[in-house]
Simulated scan of single mutants.
Amino acid sequence: MKSVKSGRDGRTRIIDGALRRFSQDGVSATTLASLREESGVSVGSFYHHFASKEHVFGVLYAEILTMYQDAFLGELMRHDDARAGIEAIVTFHMTWCGDHPDRARLLISERPPRREEPGGAEVGDARRAFFRKVAEWWRPHMKAGLLQPVPPTMCYVLWLGPAQEMCRLWFAGAHHPTAEEIAALCGAAWHSLRQPSAELT
Rank of each mutant, 00 (worst) to 15 (best):
M1D: 02
V4W: 00
K5A: 13
G7S: 13
R11W: 10
R13Q: 11
I14T: 14
D16A: 10
L19W: 09
G26A: 07
V27T: 01
L32T: 07
L35E: 09
E38C: 08
E38D: 03
S42H: 07
S42P: 01
S45D: 04
F46V: 11
Y47R: 14
H48W: 15
F50Y: 09
A51V: 15
S52E: 09
K53S: 09
F57Q: 10
G58V: 02
E63K: 01
L65Y: 10
Y68H: 15
A71D: 14
A71T: 07
G74E: 14
G74Y: 05
A82S: 05
R83T: 06
A84L: 10
E87C: 01
E87F: 05
A88R: 00
I89N: 09
V90A: 02
W96L: 12
W96A: 12
H100K: 07
P101C: 12
P101H: 14
A104M: 06
R105C: 10
R105W: 01
L107G: 09
S109W: 12
P113L: 02
R114C: 01
R115W: 07
E117V: 03
E117G: 03
G120I: 01
G124Y: 02
D125S: 15
F130H: 12
F131L: 10
K133R: 15
E136I: 12
E136C: 07
M142P: 11
L147R: 04
P151N: 11
M154G: 04
L158A: 09
L158V: 00
W159S: 04
P162D: 11
P162F: 12
A163Q: 00
M166F: 01
C167L: 15
R168L: 14
W170Q: 06
H175V: 06
H175E: 08
P177S: 04
E180S: 15
G187L: 05
H191F: 14
H191N: 10
S192G: 09
S192I: 01
R194V: 05
Q195K: 13
Q195N: 06
L200G: 00
T201W: 11
